[in-house]
């Protein structure tokens, strides 16, 4: 992408921008993985490290905004360069949000305590694995300008949403059976919701990658399968 410009300094700046976004993505991905680990193992020290690591993501976000602003002002980019620069700005925003969700998950490590029965806990690493796969693949698709991979990430979001629906129902069932689990299960519910949101951001990023590479919008029929907003009656839970 960033090659063969008549002004070679522009190539270097575009490459620097890409490297920054990918490094930021690497940290966000690692933080999500660490947050899930911390929850599963009730590892307070790991949770703390994850929480403080979020600052690095915020620093990258600021640097990317500055670099993008400078490139727009000084280079007046066009076509694929313009799409790339604007796209990375959007991707950085998504990564920043993903970082926040990872931090929020890590923060619940202490609160969740031992109040949760082991059974519903299994859902979290299952969702986590899937979300991490999506984040990793979307970063790869950006790195390699791989449109097919980006489309595949977007398509996986529906499966993640379904997984979230089933976790939601499962947790409601536990809470109805034993009200003492409500505190723990509520925390798990938020964690599951955060993971589901990370999937949405990975999907946004996939759409940005698609636009950067092709100049076209990914077809609009994005699968949306999170139906929990419509569940109100416990009888619907089963």
């Amino acid at each position: 992408m960033a090659d063969n410009h008549t002004v070679s300094a522009f190539d270097q700046e575009l490459n620097a921008l890409k490297t920054k976004v990918l490094r930021m993505g690497g940290i966000a991905e690692a933080n999500v993985a660490a947050a899930i680990q911390a929850i599963v193992r009730r590892d307070k020290a790991l949770a703390d490290r994850t929480i403080s690591s979020d600052q690095r993501i915020d620093v990258f976000d600021g640097e990317i905004s500055e670099l993008v602003t400078r490139l727009l002002a000084l280079r007046q980019p066009m076509a694929v360069d313009l799409r790339f620069i604007v796209g990375t700005l959007k991707i950085a925003t998504d990564l920043e949000r993903i970082g926040d969700y990872a931090k929020n998950i890590a923060k619940r490590t202490t609160a969740i305590g031992t109040a949760v029965p082991t059974q519903p806990m299994h859902a979290i690493p299952r969702m986590g694995e899937m979300v991490l796969g999506m984040v990793k693949d979307v970063l790869d698709s950006l790195s390699a300008e791989d449109v097919e991979k980006a489309v595949a990430v977007r398509d996986r979001d529906a499966i993640l949403d379904e997984l979230y629906n089933s976790v939601f129902r499962e947790l409601l069932t536990y809470m109805m059976e034993d009200p003492r689990t409500i505190t723990g299960c509520t925390h798990l519910l938020f964690i599951a919701k955060n993971l589901e949101r990370i999937g949405d951001h990975a999907t946004n990023m996939a759409e940005a990658v698609y636009y950067i590479v092709t100049g076209k919008r990914m077809h609009a029929d994005r699968p949306k399968a999170d139906v929990t907003a419509e569940i109100s009656d416990p009888s619907q839970v089963a």
Partner: peptide, 10 residues
């Protein structure tokens, strides 16, 4: 067109 408008030749 892409090469021209992005400053890759000219």
């Amino acid at each position: 067109t892409q090469d021209y408008v992005t400053g890759r030749f000219g």
